[in-house]
Amino acid sequence: MSLFSYKKNKKKSDAWVKIAMFLVAAFMLLPFCWIISTSLRLPKESFSLPPSFFPTSFHIENYKRVFTELPFFNFIFNSIKITIVVTVGQSIVTSLAAYAFSRIKFKGRNVLFIIMLSGIMIPYQSTIIPKFLFVKALGIMDTHLALILPALIHPLGIFLVRQFMLTIPKSYDEAAYIDGATRFRIYWNILLPMSIPSIIVVSIMSFIMMWNDFMNPLIFISTYEKMTLPLGLTVLKGYMGTGSVSAILAGVSISLITPLLIYIFGQKYLMQGSALSGIKG
């Protein structure tokens, strides 16, 4: 029953808890080891058993193949472009709205805030069809704008940044207001810089969301060269077949790099984001 013991600062961790945690960690990480080691094998040997979780050979041809035979650079470039544009655009939309919600008293503020917040709960499937029709009506079907525009609104982000702005003492901007600063200048010079930590948290959340998005590209993008990485990879699966599992996994390995970097450099913010959205949501 030691799992239920409570002392956090116990000198020794329980051995069996530790063993269990190692087993869990192995379960979580072994698929990645298999992906990477198989991506370095000869395609013919990709299914050779027993499986190995550490590279036994280094055939980087698989990686070259992915780039030479497919528009893989396009996939990566598209993903980067869309993700960055959305992350930046969303930060602007979000922080402007959060400023209004946290600092300006106006008619309908509470109602509007609640309506926007309820956007978090709306299931994706109930908006996708009209979204498709709007995108079609705007004439941006099969362009990256079809992925960018709908992603600019992020109700949870507005909520989080607003909460953060509320914790900034009003005395900062009131002083400026009395000095005759404009609302936009207060936003731009005072509140925006001060709420950067919360904006980073929201940006990282939306970065991961956009980078991994699969359903929107699936519905809105049909041209090969305009596809994003997740969609392009599923196409790769159809093309390569079993003979080239190594090559497919080379593509998969490449797609893991960005999330890994984000995790390494952004984990502090990811934790904060989870803390904010998890406990106060």
Partner: peptide
């Protein structure tokens, strides 16, 4: 290490790891 091992799959692209899992 444990935290990373458990949390990392949550940040990777579902589509790409799903492909690997069809083979697993």
């Amino acid at each position: 290490f444990f935290r990373t091992a458990i949390y990392f799959p949550s940040v990777v692209t579902t589509a790409s790891v799903a492909i690997a899992w069809t083979y697993l």
